[in-house]
Computed example of a mutant assay.
Amino acid sequence: MTVTLTATACSSSATIGSADDHAKAKATRTSSPTPAAVPALTKKEALAQIAHYSKINNRANADNNHTLLDTIEDGPLYAMSVADYKQDAGLPKADREKYKPWSYDLASMSVYIPRFTAGQQRWFAAVTHSGKNDKYARVLIMTEQAGAKQWEMVAAVDLDDKEQVPKIALDADGYATALDATSTKNVAAPVDVLRGAVGDNFSTGGDTTGRKVFTSSKASARQIKAHDSTVHKFGSRGTTVFSAATPEFTNSYALKTADGSALVVFAHTHTQRDAVAYSGLQIVPQKKDRAWLGTTNSPSFTYTFTCSDVATVPTAPGKATLIGYTCRRTDAHGMTDSS
């Protein structure tokens, strides 16, 4: 009897977990549709956001209004703008340049809008031109702040050569494809590698990784020149040392290009330490340093720079190309006020 009951119980258990039930469960699981990726916004809406940014930016810049600026900027761009405000406030009034209102030419602007699924941060890119015959190009990145539901500019990077702007891949409806630039599945050099190479351009002149990661370009050459020309500025009386620093802003933005590569926008932070070679010497703060350093001389000063960078990066093994970067000094201190 016990054997019969045990056998019956096993048989009953097998019936409850039958193949038909598994099939039904599988069908139920696979029947749920994958969340559709939808455009971050329309082109008309994107242009309206850029126009709104320009309008409010002019109002904020006219009075160095941090609070107003904070409603339209974020990330590295906001840090750089606030640094500009601080530097301007540290100058004698006679040396402050009169602010000139500006605006982007929306008619000639190219806007690149990716699709996103629910929960992903929405952002879009734009390329604007200015100057005679559209000589100059600038890459813009705007992101939606999830909590406030407002769009803010986080990067505005001038390129060295407008011809270096790659053709962005667009789908049948005219929308771009966002890529994860932190993964080697999408780019040959992930953003941390790019950031390290840029830091190396400044800290060693590209001797360690800079020239290995990047091809020769005007932007890379400018970073290397900043190192080469600055480290010897004091001659035998002092030293200048550049160092890569932990980035304050780690977000990156990447779009698939028509040739299968990626256009990547990211930020980096580096420092510059000026020091005298021997006791008895002091470094005198320059006029534009005084917002941070005052007028007190010091045997050493350390400056922090926040920068945004733009690179084209292949998906297959190969070198990336740095096509532009923008930096601002965002902090400085001397030996007297910091250990």
Rank of each mutant, 00 (worst) to 15 (best):
G131S: 09
L293Y: 08
A254W: 06
A37F: 04
D228P: 00
T204G: 06
T28K: 14
T208G: 00
K319G: 05
L179K: 03
D200R: 01
G205D: 03
K132R: 11
R328V: 13
G260S: 05
K167D: 11
T30E: 13
A51D: 14
G205Y: 03
Q286D: 15
Y85P: 12
P166T: 07
Q282R: 13
H333G: 07
R237Y: 15
S18I: 06
G147Q: 11
I56K: 10
A27N: 08
S279G: 13
T230W: 03
A27L: 07
V154S: 11
K86W: 01
L159D: 09
D84V: 12
Y278R: 07
S243K: 03
F301A: 02
A14G: 12
Q87N: 10
R115C: 02
F202A: 02
L322Q: 05
K26E: 11
N133V: 14
E45Q: 10
S279T: 14
S11F: 10
S236G: 05
V82M: 05
T204L: 06
P247V: 09
R290N: 03
F202I: 05
A178P: 03
K167L: 02
T67N: 13
D74M: 12
A126H: 09
L91N: 08
V3I: 14
N251H: 10
P35S: 04
A189R: 14
C10M: 14
S229P: 04
Q282Y: 11
T28G: 09
S300Y: 00
D95P: 03
K55W: 00
A291M: 04
E152C: 14
D337N: 10
T6G: 09
F301P: 06
S217K: 02
L69D: 14
A311D: 12
K149N: 12
L69W: 11
K287Q: 14
E97I: 08
T182S: 02
H227V: 07
T330F: 02
I168W: 04
T271C: 04
L140A: 08
I283G: 06
T336W: 12
K162Y: 03
S11G: 15
L69E: 15
A46C: 08
Q164P: 02
V313G: 07
S300G: 01
E163P: 00
M142G: 00
Y136V: 13
S279K: 11
K233M: 12
T71M: 09
T239F: 02
A226H: 03
L170M: 00
T15S: 11
A188F: 06
A118M: 08
L41I: 02
G206H: 03
S11W: 04
T326H: 12
L47Y: 10
R211F: 09
R138L: 10
F202D: 05
T315G: 06
D84K: 10
G147S: 12
A51P: 00
A9P: 05
S203Q: 04
F242S: 01
Q164F: 07
M1G: 14
T2H: 08
T271D: 00
K43S: 05
F249R: 03
A118V: 12
K225F: 07
L47R: 14
Y253M: 11
A126W: 13
F249H: 12
G238F: 00
D331Q: 11
D289W: 11
E45H: 04
N61L: 14
N186H: 05
A48G: 08
F234C: 01
G174K: 02
V241S: 02
